[in-house]
Design a protein around this nucleic acid. Structure first.
Lengths: 209, 209, 209, 209
DNA sequence: GATGAATGAGCCTTCATTCAT
DNA sequence: TATGAATGAAGGCTCATTCAT
């Protein structure tokens, strides 16, 4: 059996994907040519085409990849303690990540994907899945919070979850458009929102932490 | 004498822009070819190129256009009454617009612009301007609300403004990815946030309106 | 009868030709566009096309023009005195003209014509005519000089004439390629040649080798 | 390993250049389209463009080529014997070449270059270099001839050299405009000139005027 | 006649993809 | 499998020319 071959094959596969990711992030899906990807990977055209049937297939592979990672990011915060704290932790984790150079730069590709989703059904499917998963997870936490009486029961859990994701997405855009936008005050606002939403409004709103 | 000429010229200009907008929204800036635009406009290549020097120039013209409209949309809500009501009105106006087919479809192009901004400095400038303006306006209202004691003075006005804009942008994305996402519960959430933020937390939060 | 119309028509004709000449000299026949010519003439496209059926026709008209002027330049030197002096006068007149800024710059177009003649039978005909005429005139003078015993009878008059014209053409090229090439020493050389050719020099001039 | 590749590459390079040369000679730089060149080479567009970045680059390559060959043609005659004989040999070699069908036809392209030089600084540089070299070589021989007392010392060596080159160029034009122009009598004239210039002629050669 | 907006064939070039070695 | 030369279908853009006003 081509045991070593399989490994090497997987290695090449990942190499190409990494190269493509770099090119796509830098130049966009459309501006980046297969030549760019091939050169970045340090391979030959033919070699790349034995791993991926087309440029399209690479784009799809990357979009899939991305959505997997996104899920993990949210899942990571899915603690089992106090649900409001969990939400806060997720939000803070998110903003902390975006404050990193790596964190924000790594989203360039995601934004490409977002707009590509409007033009390409396959990418759309991937992006949708990448949104539904976190939304579902967050909604689940909200639901738990409501059951525990930590959040107003009148709020639609999914809507709140979607609002959080929208806020994240919107902030990714702003941060990418202008890296100088500060993260800190932003976190404060989000915290305040969670606070005021969580407080039955009798307890001191600032008593968190 | 050049009166009719100038009018006709402007008319063609607008026609071409409209055609291009349609094509770009449908196919994206990159997939849409000049042929597409030309055919959509029902003109000849040469004619189009007497109005715009290049495809690029058309893209820029559209991006500029879009940012002008965006400004107007926000400015429209800039009432002079109660600041918190003003914010609520702006938000509701926004979501109401997005609930329209025209409203949401009209943003496809905007999203293209958002990701293009990451790849093209010219577009970036336009998009930035299109964000700064509304952010500034909203921040101003927030500041007024704080002065009038309607909003917690600890919140960074600009951060809150940015959060609102981020929410808007994020929701545009979600709605475009899946038109079935309902608008109503979303509005409720936003309202709740504004409510809880506005209420010094002693008055009944639900007593608005 | 459209008497005034005819005059105006001729005026326009000349204007267009002048504009075209300027453009062609500056940009070459191929690089110069009808737009260039039209703008330079300060007219409209339609107007120019009522005077000339095509760009081609303008090129031809200019080439014809040019060959007429060339003939005149040589004819001017066609004195009736001493034939060798006549040749010398013609040569000196030629070089004197080329030393002028106007003289040399005015030949740019001619050079265009020279190479265009290799690609376009119509232009070729014109250029040929523009060469045969001066060659004939010069040969005639040489013949007269030989009859008067001023020039070696063994020389082919036409060949000598062609040599002179070749020298002229070649010098136009050199001067146009590099305006710094001095004219004076060049004239001296030509003079020396005519001198030595004219002097019977004791030995028979044809007795070489 | 890249041995064969390099050879093949060079071969293609030459093939394309040859095809382009043929097209340019036949149609001129401007009339000849890349399609013409591509078809003449029997290749595909893409292939040609892996060897040359643009049409322009091909033109430049050809112009460079040409000037190299021109240098060699002159250098070939640069014997070390009697300088006047050397000059005569060079001239005769030149005319002999022009009498060949290959010789004259091969200059069509050169003439294109001559007029293109007036419109394109890059080509101008090449053409200038292609003239300066032979002029320098010829002037050197003339200088030697003067030192050996074979040529009148009053003549400017460079001017004489330029005159010879001008004569060559001018003759190329005439021969190309009309292949029937005989070469022989022309050679006779040139010989006569060199003769009479070389002969001290009893009287001092500088005693004219 | 004059105008200049409009035409559309065609040019140069790119780039995803293939295939002989 | 890996290579990279070769392919060829477009794509963006130009420009000589026409024609309704």
């Amino acid at each position: 059996m081509p045991r070593i071959g399989a490994e090497r094959r997987a290695g090449r596969h990942a190499e190409i994907l990494a190269a493509a990711e770099a090119c796509f992030a830098r130049l966009g899906f459309h501006r980046a040519t297969m030549r760019d990807v091939i050169d970045e990977a340090g391979l030959s055209a033919g070699c790349v085409y034995t791993h991926f049937r087309s440029k399209r297939e690479i784009v799809d592979a990357i979009a899939t990849d991305r959505h997997v990672r996104e899920e993990q990011a949210i899942a990571a915060g899915d603690a089992t303690g106090d649900p409001v704290d969990a939400l806060r932790a997720i939000a803070q984790g998110f903003f902390a990540d975006l404050s990193t150079r790596r964190g924000i730069e790594g989203r360039r590709l995601a934004v490409q994907t977002w707009s590509e989703a409007l033009l390409d059904p396959d990418v759309l499917r991937l992006v949708r899945a990448g949104v539904e998963k976190p939304v579902g997870a967050l909604a689940e936490i909200v639901r738990r919070a409501q059951k525990e009486g930590r959040l107003a029961p009148a709020l639609d859990p999914e809507a709140l979850a979607r609002a959080m994701v929208a806020l994240f997405h919107g902030f990714v855009l702003q941060k990418l458009w202008d890296p100088r936008v500060p993260t800190a005050p932003y976190t404060v606002v989000l915290d305040a929102i969670l606070d005021s939403l969580a407080t039955p409004c009798g307890a001191a709103p600032g008593s968190r932490r």
